[in-house]
Design a protein around this nucleic acid. Structure first.
Length: 214
DNA sequence: CGCCAGGGCCATA
DNA sequence: TATGGCCATGGC
C-alpha cells in the first residue's frame, strides 16, 4: 500500500469533501485557530456567533474581551482571541487581501505565519492550503493515527512527516486539499468511533493496533 | 461522571 | 529534543 492507493480507496469511499467548510477564505483562517484541539461542532457554534459579520475589519473593531465572548463555545477562548488578533495583524500587512497574500512565496508566507504567536505548523499549513491555495500537505493527529495504524513508521517531527507526504505525493493543491479532508472524514467515522473497524474501507490494510499513544 | 476534540506555548531537564 | 502543565467548551 502506497499513499496514492490509500488516497484512491478513501476517495472512492467518500468522494469529494469540498473543504475547507467555510464561506470565505478569511473564515478559513479564523476557523483554523478556533479548531485547535477542539471539536468542530464547537467551532461552528463560535462561527455562528459572528452572525455573518466575520471579517478582518470587524475583528479589528472588537476588543479582546468582546472577541473572546463571541468565540466562547470553541473553548480556550481567551488565548484564541489573542491568536486571532495576532493573525489579523499579520494579515493587515497584506491589506486584508487574499489575492495579495496568495501571490507571495509559500516558504516566506509559512515562515511569517509561524512567527505569529499561536500559529503553529498545522494551523499555518491549513491556512496556506485552504485559504491561500498553496500546495502544502497538512499533518494532524488523525494523519498520524491513521497512517500508524496502516503500518507506516512515520517520523515524530511534524515537518518530517509533512516532507514525507510532499515527497511521495506530487504537489497539487487540489489533491492535497482532498487528501487531508478525506483523512479527517475517515478518522471521524472510524478508529475511535468504531474500534471494531466494521465496514471500514481500509480495514483490510489496517493493523488495528491501539490508538491511545499516537 | 470522565473522556475527548481537525494544537500551541512555555517551563523545565 | 522531549515531556508536562496549561488553556475551556460542549457532546456523548
Amino acid at each position: 500500500m502506497n499513499l496514492s492507493q490509500i488516497y484512491q480507496i478513501l476517495y472512492k469511499a467518500y468522494r469529494t469533501q469540498g473543504w475547507w467548510p467555510a464561506k470565505t477564505p478569511y473564515e478559513v483562517m479564523v476557523g483554523a485557530v478556533l479548531t485547535q484541539n477542539t471539536n468542530w461542532g464547537n467551532v461552528e457554534k463560535a462561527i455562528d456567533n459572528f452572525r455573518g459579520r466575520l471579517s478582518p475589519e470587524y475583528i479589528d473593531s472588537l476588543d479582546l474581551n468582546e472577541l473572546a465572548q463571541i468565540i466562547r463555545p470553541s473553548g480556550f477562548f481567551n488565548i484564541k482571541a489573542k491568536r486571532i488578533k495576532a493573525l489579523n495583524s499579520w494579515f493587515s500587512d497584506y491589506n486584508y487581501s487574499i489575492k495579495t497574500a496568495s501571490a507571495e512565496n509559500t516558504v516566506k508566507l509559512r515562515a511569517e505565519l509561524l512567527n505569529v504567536n499561536g500559529i503553529g505548523r498545522e494551523t499555518a499549513d491549513s491556512i496556506l492550503l485552504y485559504a491561500l491555495g498553496k500546495p502544502v500537505f497538512v499533518v494532524d493527529a488523525y494523519t498520524r493515527r491513521i497512517f500508524s495504524r496502516l503500518g507506516f513508521d512515520l517520523p515524530k517531527e511534524y515537518d518530517s512527516i509533512k516532507a514525507f507526504f510532499e515527497e511521495t505525493v506530487k504537489p497539487d493543491t487540489k489533491v492535497y486539499n482532498e487528501y487531508h479532508a478525506l483523512i479527517v472524514r475517515h478518522a471521524k467515522a472510524y478508529c475511535r468511533k468504531k474500534p471494531d473497524c466494521a465496514d471500514c474501507p481500509l480495514s483490510g490494510f489496517c493493523l488495528k493496533i491501539g490508538i491511545d499513544n499516537i
